[in-house]
Computed example of a mutant assay.
Amino acid sequence: MKLRNYLQQRITLSPEEWKVFEGMLIKESYPKKFPLLKKGSIEEYVSFIEKGIVRFYVPGEELDTSFAFIFEEEFLCAYDSFLLQQPCRYAAETVTETTIWRLSYHDLQTLYEDYPQFNILGRILSEQIYLKKADRELAFLTQTPEERYTALFSQRPNVMKFIPLQYIATYIGITPQALSRIRKRIS
């Protein structure tokens, strides 16, 4: 199980802790373009992507604005909504067929209370979320759209195969037409 391997690289769980944790997990599979979270709903789960890609986006009248892509072996969560248990200001949907393992807000709180190792994991994941957001903000302040596109491509070379160009364009902050021009210049 990819989730178990992921966790074992970050924390040490006893057989009892793993059994309790595993008993709380829900495995779900979704088709491409499935809405995992709608704007205005409350994020109830932290999820681990076993297979697939998910995007976070702000729904627009004419064009949605993508602001995050989450890939295999990464955690997925509308973290602000999850932490505060308040309505989300954005949405999430699958980009490809996706399989995830979900843990509810309530169950995570129980793990935090009963098992110190999960507090360590929570801190590690929070730090990763912060670093990704900080990198993204800095990229928008210091890089051109072409540099953001090139960075995305170099970090995730397979991304172009699965993510529609309109999602990539809004992710790097440009129109699909401007992305076409950048792609022509680069190739």
Score class of each variant (00 low, 15 high):
Leu108Asn: 02
Leu131Ala: 12
Thr65Trp: 09
Ala68His: 05
Val58Arg: 10
Ala92Thr: 02
Glu147Gly: 06
Leu131Gln: 13
Glu74Gly: 04
Pro31Glu: 15
Glu28Ala: 01
Leu3His: 01
Ile70Thr: 10
Phe153Val: 14
Thr94Ile: 00
Ile42Thr: 13
Glu97Thr: 13
Gln86Cys: 06
Leu25Thr: 01
Ser104Asp: 01
Ile163Met: 04
Cys77Trp: 02
Lys32Ser: 15
Phe48Asn: 00
Tyr167Met: 13
Ile120Cys: 05
Gln143Ile: 05
Pro176Arg: 09
Arg89Trp: 09
Asp64Trp: 05
Ile11Asn: 00
Ile182Asn: 06
Met24Leu: 10
Glu93Lys: 04
Leu36Trp: 01
Tyr79Leu: 11
Thr142Arg: 14
Asp80Asn: 12
Ser41Asn: 11
Glu93Ala: 06
Val159Ala: 12
Ile129Cys: 06
Gln8Val: 11
Tyr57Thr: 08
Ala91Asn: 02
Val46Ile: 13
Val95Lys: 05
Phe118Arg: 00
Glu61Phe: 08
Ile174Phe: 05
Leu25Gln: 03
Ile168Val: 15
Ser47Leu: 01
Tyr45Met: 02
Glu22Cys: 08
Leu111Asp: 02
Ile26Leu: 13
Ser126Cys: 09
Gln117Leu: 07
Glu22Gly: 06
Trp18Asp: 08
Leu3Lys: 01
Val54Phe: 02
Ser126Lys: 09
Pro59Trp: 08
Met1Trp: 09
Phe82Asp: 01
Ser126Phe: 11
Phe153His: 11
Arg156Cys: 10
Lys184His: 09
Ser104Val: 01
Gln155Glu: 15
Arg4Thr: 14
Asp114Thr: 10
Val58Ser: 11
Tyr57Leu: 05
Ile124Ser: 04
Glu43Pro: 03
Leu63Cys: 10
Pro116Cys: 04
Ile26Arg: 14
Phe67Asn: 09
Pro164Met: 08
Ser126Arg: 07
Leu7Gly: 06
Val58Leu: 13
Phe75Val: 01
Asp135Ile: 10
Ala78Lys: 00
